[in-house]
Design a protein around this nucleic acid. Sequence first.
RNA 1: GGAGAGGUGCGUGAGCGGUUGAAACGAUCCGCCUCGAAAGCGGACAUACCUUAACGGGUAUCGGGGGUUCGAAUCCCUCCCUCUCCGCCA
Length: 440
Amino acid sequence: MLDLNFVRDNLPLVEEKLRQRGMDPAEVLGNFSAIDQERRRDITTLETAKRRRNELSPKIGVLKQAEKRGTLSGDQQKELENLAKAVAAEKSTIEQFELRVREDDEKLLQVLKTIPNLPNESVPIGTSAEQNVEVRRWGAPPKFDFAPKPHWELGEQLGVLDLERAAKISGARFAVYWDLGAKLERALANFMLDLHTKEQGYTEVLPPYMVNSESMYGTGQLPKFASDLFRVPHGERDLWLIPTAEVPVTNLYRDEIIDGARLPISLTAYTPCFRSEAGSYGKDVRGIIRQHQFQKVELVKFSRPEESYEQLEKLTRDAENVLQKLGLHYRVVTLCTGDMGFSSAKTYDIEVWLPGQQLFREISSCSNFEAFQARRANIRFRPEGKSKTEFVHTLNGSALAVGRTWVALVENHQQPDGSVHIPEALQPYMGADRITPKKF
RNA sequence: GGAGAGGUGCGUGAGCGGUUGAAACGAUCCGCCUCGAAAGCGGACAUACCUUAACGGGUAUCGGGGGUUCGAAUCCCUCCCUCUCCGCCA
């Protein structure tokens, strides 16, 4: 969420940034200015009435007490009656305008909540993924003197990926991993967590996989994207399955004031992610690229505003490091204004090369949300030596989506005999140097 | 699931119908003292919103929401959370 005062004072800028995102400012902002002005008028009326009431109340108190003691004169009796009448009048104004202000607040908040974050100046302007800008490439595509297979064929032949039985027990877009396939998932997760915690300075956390609605609002999944989520009925207050560890981990500090000396805070978490993706049926139906449940190692940072872009670069490099150690060819692209997520001010996607499909595929998305999430989730910090609090900047990125890393590893390291070579860095975690075909 | 206790500012913790935005202590910040520091002394110290050119003024906030009252941190209802005991359970 953007700051109300900022939007009011910088309307032309906000409109321009909305256009850059390919949105119609008039449609998003609606009658923002009219609502804002009406709200402020109503607040002033309401508060004036309250002020009068507060001035009159103590006078009534004094007279009432005199009445109790029976020392009330005739004049005072009259005054008391007049005061009571005056307060009653203010009270009806208060009741009326409390209602109106509440409605105004709701209307205004509704507009404010639908305004996406403003893209940073360094973000390329564009309307779709076509205009994303490649910033660097690492490695080279592996050379094969045979036709490399896609992971769903390899997985089946190796006996490590079972989509048929997954469909039987759960449905489409779920997977069962067997034997070394299951172990590969676990090995990748452990490898990534060890890298982040031992070499890159992150602290590991294990959060709940279900969260309440407030948390989903805090990071921006609600109210706009409810249809992408799995909802769990639970008494009066339903819970939600997390679509990413970003949700519980960023909300760790919701409604808190962080000691400035502790920043930046760098956390990593390995969790399953649940996505309903109601709108995406028909896309990526083959294999395990798009699933209702997948596992991901996430990086989350809480940063001072002035160093958040530096932290974004670091975070992105930390994610890239995983691919480098696994010997997987990839490129990094800066998402253009039209392709960026709702809450992000700048996003780098890391795309890994998939030889079985001859294309680059998103495996990580690293974003700086600036104060957008922090304002909504009320995450502040106190700079050293100052009493005034400020909103932190929040960042996160996958490092990496484990399921897609599994895919990339299997496709890139496949051998002519149908086996898959395990990169050296991963061998200690696998206890094997290759996966060979086996029936399940 | 049953019984009880409680949720107050950055923290500990008083207040239990009117002068309490909230005592006291601690933390933090600014002065004084000091070669410097500690200790000591003095002072400052919530947030959001409305209003104002500004100084300032106002409103709200004592877990969330609702109610009683001229007036609520204080009384009532409800929800959430924490703690203690019992039961159940991985």
